[in-house]
Design a protein around this nucleic acid. Structure first.
Lengths: 131, 131
DNA sequence: TAGGTGTACTAATATCCTTAATACACTTTC
DNA sequence: GAAAGTGTATTAAGGATATTAGTACACCTA
C-alpha cells in the first residue's frame, strides 16, 4: 500500500504520488472510504519530507480524489460521475492528442493505435469486457 | 508560420514550442525539408529570448524532428518509420494510460473513449479514412 | 492524558526557466 | 573579400518551483 519513486523521472515527487494514487484508484486497488497512509507514515517510508506528502494529499483533495479528516486521516472519496465536467473531457482529449502525435512519429496505423488503447484500458480495468 | 504562447500553461516556453512543432508536423502543416523561422526571427516575433528558442530547436533535433545546418537554418526532417523504437511505443502507452485514468474519473465508457480517440485522430489527420 | 492525525509557518538549499549581452563559426549573396 | 544572415557557446543574473528542516498548532481517539 505504498508508492515508489522514479528518480529518473523529471516529475516532482508530489506529482508522482498524485499520479500513483489516481492510477491505483482507476485500477481498483484503492476503493472508496479506504484509508491512505498517514502523512508521517508515508513520508518516513518513502524517505521524503512530510511537507511533500502533504502537498500531494492537498492537491488530491482539491481534485476531489480524496477526503481528509482532521485527527483521523485521509480517505478515498466516493466516485461520482463527472461526465458533465468539461475540464475532465479536455484533459482526456489532451492526453489522447499527445498519444496521436507520438503515434505519428512511431509510424503506427490508426487501427494499431486503437488496439493499443484497448490494451492499456484492459490492463487498467483488469479485463472486464463490458461495452 | 509562427507559434503562440499560453501564459496560463505551466509548461515552459521551450516545451510549448516543441509541442507545437510536433503537432504541426503530425497535422501536415509542416512538411519535410520545410524551413522553420530562424532563432532570432522567432524569438523577436514571440518576444522571448533567443536562447529559449535555441533550446527548443536543440531538443527537437535531439528527437530527430528537425535538422539544423550552420549558416543556413533549421529544417523539418524526413519522416522515418520508427515502429521498432521502444521509446516511442512507451511514450504512446504512457499518454494513453493518462487518458484512461482521466476517463475513469470522467465516467465515460470504453466505447466512448475509443470514439474520442478516433475524433482526435481525425482532427489531426484531416479525416483521411484509411485503416 | 497520550499519541496519532492533518495543517501552518518560516527558513534554507537546489534546480530549472528565462533573460541579457557578447562572441564565434558557418553559409549565402553581392 | 565584405556584409548579412544562419545556429551555437559562454557567463551572469533574476525569478519560480521543489524539497528539506524544524517547530508549533488544532483536532480526534483510546
Amino acid at each position: 500500500m505504498f508508492f515508489h519513486i522514479d528518480t529518473k523521472s523529471n516529475a516532482p515527487l508530489y506529482e508522482q504520488i498524485i499520479q500513483q494514487v489516481k492510477e491505483m484508484c482507476a485500477k481498483g486497488l484503492l476503493t472508496p472510504d479506504e484509508r491512505l497512509p498517514s502523512v508521517r507514515e508515508l513520508s518516513s517510508h518513502m524517505v521524503i519530507n512530510p511537507n511533500t506528502v502533504s502537498k500531494a494529499y492537498q492537491e488530491l483533495e482539491r481534485q476531489g480524489i480524496i477526503v481528509t479528516v482532521r485527527g483521523r486521516g485521509t480517505f478515498i472519496s466516493k466516485k461520482t460521475d463527472r461526465t458533465s465536467d468539461p475540464g475532465r473531457l479536455k484533459a482526456i482529449r489532451e492526453s489522447l492528442k499527445e498519444a496521436v502525435i507520438e503515434n505519428y512519429y512511431a509510424g503506427y496505423s490508426k487501427k494499431e493505435l486503437i488496439k493499443l488503447l484497448e490494451e492499456v484500458y484492459e490492463e487498467m480495468e483488469g479485463k472486464t469486457d463490458e461495452n
